[in-house]
Design a protein around this nucleic acid. Structure first.
Lengths: 129, 129
DNA sequence: CCCGAGTAGCGAAAGAATTCGCTATTTCGC
DNA sequence: GCGAAATAGCGAATTCTTTCGCTACTCGGG
């Protein structure tokens, strides 16, 4: 019996996506250098992962320029939202609120960040204060 | 070259944990019934998954009573926090705040829930209002 | 034009996750 | 006590992920 493929990027795939989001469209070489620094992988492995990701549609490739140029097929914000929604559904039973409470309680945010959250909250509450 | 085992419960493991959190300590039968309803798995599969999870320390087993009784080794809140921290680090680059903003913006919370978030926020801001 | 360096890619290997068939053991109604 | 039914569990099979060796191709300098 089969094992269903994950709908989300896997661990290594996510690392590569993060590198791409940071660097912008890049040939294999710079991507590999980052990945190697992070976890000591072989150049071949990087190339292979990119090709797998290309098959899955996680990255796009421009073959017109000589060293082919790869770029993420998804924006970072979009990917974040996908992971977040997944977490809310699978782990928080659909309750975004308890997730927010956990996140606020456990991580120390700066006053500026709290302000920002406050603003959004005011807005959602119809601006009473 | 090896592939490192995931530090977090896998997909099916999480489903089983959720069932255990809901039912409380249970023998295999009721656990299986839920799992089967969710995804049509065979009884053997459920038993096997539980044994794998026992090896990993995700569940505990009481063998004294005749149908063995399984229970989650971790509270739901604890597991949620672990997943959340993981997400923040791996996907949100450590910024719990942007995760909170995403979660608030994308999910519709009830006024009561917003109140609750507001209270926590006030508290964190040193109660000015 | 030839050579070496850098670039691409394939296919196999190894481990993890998930599935279930088949066998053994236990339990219980009769 | 005896056989059917429920309960446990092992080990093999399958798929997915990740890794890399080895081959082939491309390109610029001499």
């Amino acid at each position: 019996m089969p094992r269903p493929a994950s709908s989300q990027p896997t661990d290594v795939e996510l690392r590569i996506l993060r590198i791409l989001w940071e660097l912008g469209p890049s040939p294999v070489r710079p991507i590999h250098e980052r990945l190697e620094a992070e976890k000591g992988t072989n150049y071949s492995t990087t190339v292979k992962m990119l090709s797998v990701m290309l098959d899955k549609g996680l990255v796009k490739r421009d073959e017109s320029s000589s060293p082919h140029v790869y770029r993420a097929a998804m924006t970072q914000a979009r990917a974040q939202k996908r992971f977040l929604d997944d977490l809310i559904e699978k782990v928080y039973e659909g309750s975004a609120t308890s997730l927010v409470l956990h996140a606020l309680a456990s991580q120390k945010a700066t006053p500026e960040e709290l302000e920002e959250i406050q603003r959004l909250l005011d807005q959602m509450q119809g601006d009473r204060r």
